[in-house]
């Protein structure tokens, strides 16, 4: 009989090995900033409890199933009428309550911590960057520096970044797993996400909330550079990069992917997507782009919206 139960046992073993062993191989468990680190600590703390619960259940399960199998020799301990035990039932009500309390306290603390800039660099003023999702790209605006980028964002190392998140159309989620958890970017709304990179480096960011055909490729690069390099880049961009024209910006409002772009001015003089839900939709209407049934004949032939100046935006 015991043979049959081996897979269950092996599964339990696998669980603990995987969970307790190879942590650092996984992005979320190998964070590069204080926000992600706090979340990692919370995750590992909870995994400890969960492993314990699994262990208890699996041991009980194995013992009971083996000991009380039908083809055992001694049947004297078969008690078909045994219907409960107050003591045991109180025990397995009380212990989960205690575990819930033990998990709640650090959870609540972390929830509140993540709503403020990380303590590590509380003495430095956060840098504010607005991230706007548009199907299927990310536009980053540096209001103070007066510059704008598409599909990449430069941030200074060891300084809190206050991301102001919004969207021009679909509900998206802004996520840089190596730096910390995600938050939604929604049209006509503004949400705030504090993140920070401890060191220089390049990280992958993306939209993680499904929003249609180009979702998979709605990604961006995060470059963490030194404060002086950042300042120099911001200054150079302000003086050397091309200005963002309204025509160009309206092309960005069309559905499609885009290459990386850099501008010496921002879109904030035309629209604040946090206050205006329908700018992108109205722009598409104005430019004569009609939404097409993906199975319709028009969509199949050539659904290239009017060619945009940067020639990169395309939809399938």
């Amino acid at each position: 009989m015991f043979k049959r139960l081996k897979p269950f046992f092996a599964l339990g073993l696998m669980l603990s090995v995987f969970f307790l062993g190879g942590c650092s191989n996984y992005i979320v468990l190998d964070p590069k900033g204080p926000v992600g680190a706090q979340q990692k600590d919370l995750i590992l703390y909870s995994i400890g409890f969960m492993a314990l619960i699994l262990l208890v259940v699996y041991i009980l399960f194995t013992v009971i199933v083996v000991k009380y199998r039908e083809n055992r020799k001694d049947m004297s301990n078969w008690e078909p009428e045994q219907e409960g035990s107050k003591k045991l039932e109180i025990l397995w009500t009380a212990i989960p309550i205690l575990i819930t309390i033990a998990l709640s306290i650090p959870t609540i603390k972390t929830i509140y911590d993540l709503e403020k800039p990380p303590q590590a660099s509380a003495h430095k003023e956060p840098i504010v960057i607005t991230a706007t999702a548009v199907d299927w790209k990310w536009i980053f605006t540096y209001p103070k520096q007066g510059i704008e980028t598409v599909n990449y964002v430069n941030i200074p190392e060891d300084r809190t970044v206050e991301f102001k998140l919004t969207s021009a159309d679909s509900m998206s989620s802004f996520w840089i797993p190596e730096l910390g958890g995600q938050k939604y970017a929604m049209p006509g709304m503004e949400t705030t996400l504090y993140l920070q990179a401890d060191h220089k480096g390049k990280f992958a960011g993306r939209n993680s909330n499904f929003n249609g055909e180009g979702f998979t490729h709605q990604i961006f690069d995060v470059n963490s550079v030194s404060q002086s390099d950042f300042d120099k880049w911001a200054k150079d961009t302000k003086t050397k990069a091309p200005e963002l024209t309204k025509k160009q910006y309206d092309q960005l409002m069309l559905q499609g992917e885009a290459k990386k772009m850099t501008f010496s001015s921002t879109h904030l003089k035309w629209v604040d997507h946090a206050k205006n839900r329908d700018y992108a939709v109205k722009t598409r209407e104005r430019l004569g782009v009609v939404p097409q049934n993906p199975h319709g004949s028009k969509a199949k032939d050539a659904n290239n919206p009017e060619q945009d100046s940067h020639g990169e935006s395309h939809s399938h």
Partner: peptide
Amino acid sequence: VTGVMLAMAAADYQYHN
């Protein structure tokens, strides 16, 4: 148990989606 892990909002920001 993974459901309980997901219930911890601060950690869920990393598991979500």
